[in-house]
């Protein structure tokens, strides 16, 4: 058994810790990705009855991005069980109350409702920013690749780069700069 195969063997049977940066990511597309690591579906030994799931740390969950106007169109429903106990909360309202809730619900809803789901969710650690406790961060050995590239703001580019970027158009000769 080669060294690589041996490490692969260890990694398969141990609980690996993954980290995922959720900044500018769609939580509902990300949840399909995170779910696979949480349940261990990326391992060749996967079986629903085989408890081989990994841990996933999600950071920057406050900076998730939703497409278009989904922040005010997506609604979270809750019913207390009493008459008139129904409430509908908009996604941006829920995100304001708890910036980890949207991604947590997205991962929870992406999995089948069976007895394992609650225990699988215990292996998901979500943080609204980059401040992760050191004892958790020390376990991390893999970073899950982001689904969409993080956009860069215009004021984050150095002024020289903006000025010297190739220009598509020039101003007409009689133009008054504003």
């Amino acid at each position: 058994m080669s060294a690589l195969k041996r490490v692969q063997q260890w990694a398969t049977f141990a609980r690996i810790w993954h980290i995922y940066n959720a900044a500018w990511q769609n939580p509902f597309h990300s949840s399909e990705l995170i779910k696979k690591y949480l349940m261990g579906m990326h391992k060749p030994i996967y079986h629903p009855m085989n408890d081989c799931g990994d841990h996933v740390i999600v950071i920057n969950s406050a900076d998730i991005a939703l497409p278009g106007d989904e922040w005010k169109k997506r609604v979270y429903f809750h019913h207390t069980g009493y008459p008139g106990g129904a409430t509908w909360t908009l996604a941006w309202n829920l995100h304001e109350k708890d910036p980890t809730m949207i991604i947590k619900k997205a991962v929870y809803n992406s999995m089948d409702g069976n007895l394992q789901r609650r225990y699988t969710m215990q292996r998901l650690h979500i943080f609204p920013d980059e401040n992760v406790p050191k004892e958790l961060l020390g376990n991390v050995s893999n970073e899950i690749r982001q689904l969409r590239p993080m956009p860069k703001r215009l004021d984050d580019y150095p002024e020289k780069d903006v000025k010297e970027f190739p220009k598509v158009i020039d101003y007409p000769k009689d133009y008054v700069l504003r």
């Binding site: 900044a23 500018w24 769609n26 900076d63 998730i64 991005a65 939703l66 497409p67 278009g68 106007d69 989904e70 922040w71 005010k72 908009l90 996604a91 941006w92 995100h95 969409r148 956009p151 860069k152 703001r153 215009l154 004021d155």
Partner: peptide, 26 residues
């Protein structure tokens, strides 16, 4: 993504926008 190219009365910071507008969108 272009907060420096805004009218003078704008507060420039996208995170200080009103209600749902302050969150990232694509």
């Amino acid at each position: 993504l272009m907060p420096n190219l805004t009218p003078a009365y704008s507060n420039k910071d996208p995170k200080k926008r009103y209600e749902w507008k302050k969150y990232n969108k694509y």
